[in-house]
Simulated scan of single mutants.
Amino acid sequence: MLDTKQHDFKKNYRVIVPSTVEQDLEEILDYYIALNSDFADELLQHFQQRFRELRQFPERGRYVPELYQYNELRYRELIQQHWRIFYKIQKQTVIVLAVIDGRRNVQDILLKKLQRKFKI
């Protein structure tokens, strides 16, 4: 039997959530706190769990369909309920680029967010 304590096959990536993305999350959570604070707390926990998952499994996210059609394979996404978490992988680092409500016009919003400067 393989001793997994001696053979750690997991890669640990550094996950960066820039302040611009933190602001996106604050806006989402502020909206839901006013409606249902329990739901807002659960939503925050779900987002945090997704960011933790990226530490070990960043490749599990799918390529962004709106960009994939242009053969753009640098960007990936995870889905969390109605929200899409966009990120890219650079060596051993995962950079979260945006969190967008998937019910909106994602293509226009995504282009604007990917063009903004990130403060880390």
Results as ranks from 00 to 15, higher is better:
residue 17 V to Q: 04
residue 20 T to S: 12
residue 24 D to K: 03
residue 25 L to Q: 09
residue 25 L to A: 12
residue 27 E to F: 06
residue 28 I to M: 03
residue 30 D to V: 00
residue 31 Y to F: 15
residue 33 I to S: 12
residue 34 A to C: 05
residue 36 N to F: 01
residue 37 S to T: 12
residue 37 S to W: 01
residue 38 D to T: 12
residue 41 D to L: 06
residue 42 E to S: 13
residue 42 E to M: 11
residue 43 L to N: 05
residue 45 Q to K: 10
residue 45 Q to H: 05
residue 46 H to I: 07
residue 47 F to W: 04
residue 49 Q to M: 06
residue 49 Q to D: 13
residue 50 R to C: 14
residue 51 F to T: 10
residue 51 F to C: 08
residue 55 R to I: 11
residue 55 R to H: 14
residue 56 Q to N: 15
residue 57 F to N: 14
residue 57 F to P: 05
residue 58 P to K: 02
residue 58 P to M: 05
residue 60 R to A: 06
residue 60 R to Q: 14
residue 61 G to W: 06
residue 65 P to D: 01
residue 65 P to C: 06
residue 70 Y to K: 03
residue 70 Y to S: 00
residue 71 N to M: 03
residue 72 E to L: 09
residue 73 L to P: 02
residue 80 Q to S: 12
residue 81 Q to M: 15
residue 82 H to Y: 14
residue 83 W to S: 14
residue 84 R to E: 05
residue 84 R to M: 08
residue 85 I to C: 09
residue 85 I to E: 01
residue 86 F to T: 07
residue 86 F to D: 14
residue 87 Y to S: 02
residue 92 Q to N: 15
residue 94 V to C: 01
residue 102 G to T: 01
residue 102 G to Y: 06
residue 104 R to N: 15
residue 104 R to Y: 12
residue 105 N to Y: 07
residue 106 V to G: 05
residue 110 L to P: 03
